[in-house]
Design a protein around this nucleic acid. Structure first.
Lengths: 206, 206
DNA sequence: CGTGCCAGGTGCCAT
DNA sequence: ATGGCACTTGGCACG
C-alpha cells in the first residue's frame, strides 16, 4: 500500500463526472491498483476513488505538471480518474500482506436464525415449516403454520422499511395463488423487524 | 490526519459485532475523530470504522498491551471500536486543512431535468405538469399529461430495477384513487431508465 | 428533525 | 456472469 499526501486536483469521468478543486489530500493506492482520495473529514467514503482492478500511470501534462491517470477495469475507454499533483508532501509504501478478513455477527441472518428457533414469539402457536422457502421470485425468510393450520409467511428485516413490506406483499400474492398452501385459509404475512418505521406500519395495515 | 501502519486486532461492537484477527493494516484517524481501518485490498469501504463524531483514547490493557478505544457519538454507551495494537510500523500526522468539497454532475437529477425539458421524447405529445409531484407516499418524478389529456406518471431511474417498477406501481395505485387526476381515463405510467433489467421489464408488462 | 430515496453504492450469495 | 438483496449501508433533499 502506498500513501501519498499531496496538494492535488482530481477529476473523475465515468458513470458520472466529479471534480475536486486543488487542495491537500491523502491519496491511497492499494495493492490491487485501486485508488482512494480522502480528505481530513467526512465519513469513511473517499471523495473520489477507483475500484479494483485498476491501473495507475504517472505522467506529465503538456505544460510539465505531474498528472496521475487511473483507469478502471475497462482500460482507457472506461472510468478514468485524473489526479493533477501540484506538490507531494509525503510518499511512503508499506507491505501489509493479505488480510485474514472480517467476521460479522448480529446481522439479519442471525436474527432470522433466532426467530426460526422460536417462531412462537412471533405469534402464539406458530411452528416453522421451512427457512428460506424458495419461490419463483425469491426465498421467503420463514414459512410457518399457525395453530389452525394456515400458512404464515414471515419477512425478517433488521430495519422495517417500506420496501420490506412490499417484498412481503409480493410473496403473499404469489403464495396465495398456490392452492396447496391455502388449504386452511389464505396465507397471512408477518413483518418482523428490530425497528419498524411508522410509514411501513401504515402500509402494512393495508 | 494521522496515519498509522500497525499490526493490530480490531473488534467492533455496536449495531452488530465484528472481529478482525491480528494482521498489518492502515489505521486512519481523521481530524473529526473518525477512524478507518483499511487493508491492502477490497474497495473503498474500510474493514472497520467509526463514523464522526468520535473520540480516540490510547490506553493499555491489564497485561500491558497497547489498546486504542474509539467511542462514537453516544460516548462509552454507544458504538465502540477496540484496536489492540501489537506493533506500530509507521505513525505520521499531516495537516490537510479543510477540503473545498466535491462537485458532481450527471446523476439521476440531471437525467430528470433533461426529461422534464423534453417530455415529448418519452411519448409523442406528452407535456409536463409538474416535476417531483408530491403524494402521500413520496414525490412522483414527473407528472405529465398526454395529447388526450390523460395523466401520465413517469419514474426516472439511472438503472431500471424491480423496486423502481414497484415504486411506480405504488404511485399509480394512489394516483388512480384521486378522481381529479383520472378525468380523462386512468393514470398511465412510464418507466424511464438508461438501462432496464430484463426482470424489471417482465414485471412492468404486468 | 424525521422520512423517503439515490448511490460511481459495495458486498454476499444464489442460480 | 447475472440477479436479488442486505448493509454499522451513507448521503441528501424536502416536509
Amino acid at each position: 500500500m502506498r500513501l501519498v499526501i499531496a496538494r492535488c486536483q482530481v477529476d473523475y469521468a465515468g458513470r458520472l463526472t466529479a471534480h475536486l478543486p486543488m487542495a491537500t489530500r491523502l491519496i491511497m493506492v492499494k495493492n490491487d491498483g485501486s485508488v482512494l482520495v480522502h480528505s481530513d473529514g467526512g465519513s469513511y467514503k473517499p471523495l473520489n476513488w477507483m475500484s479494483p482492478p485498476a491501473r495507475l500511470r504517472e505522467g506529465v501534462t503538456e505544460d510539465g505538471r505531474v498528472e496521475w491517470t487511473v483507469h478502471g477495469k475497462d482500460g482507457p475507454d472506461g472510468d478514468t480518474l485524473r489526479i493533477l499533483v501540484d506538490e507531494v508532501l509525503s510518499d511512503s509504501s508499506h507491505d501489509l500482506g493479505l488480510d485474514p478478513g472480517l467476521q460479522k455477527d448480529g446481522v439479519e441472518k442471525h436474527l432470522q436464525e433466532l426467530l426460526a428457533d422460536h417462531p412462537g414469539t412471533l405469534a402464539p402457536g406458530l411452528t416453522l415449516v421451512r427457512r428460506e422457502y424458495p419461490t419463483a421470485i425469491g426465498p421467503v425468510d420463514l414459512l410457518c403454520r399457525d395453530d389452525r393450520g394456515s400458512c404464515v409467511a414471515v419477512e425478517v428485516k433488521r430495519r422495517g422499511d417500506i420496501d420490506g413490506v412490499e417484498q412481503l406483499t409480493r410473496y403473499l400474492e404469489l403464495l396465495n395463488r398456490d392452492s396447496t398452501l391455502c388449504l386452511n385459509g389464505s396465507v397471512r404475512g408477518i413483518f418482523a423487524a428490530q425497528e419498524i418505521r411508522p410509514q411501513a406500519r401504515v402500509l402494512a395495515t393495508d
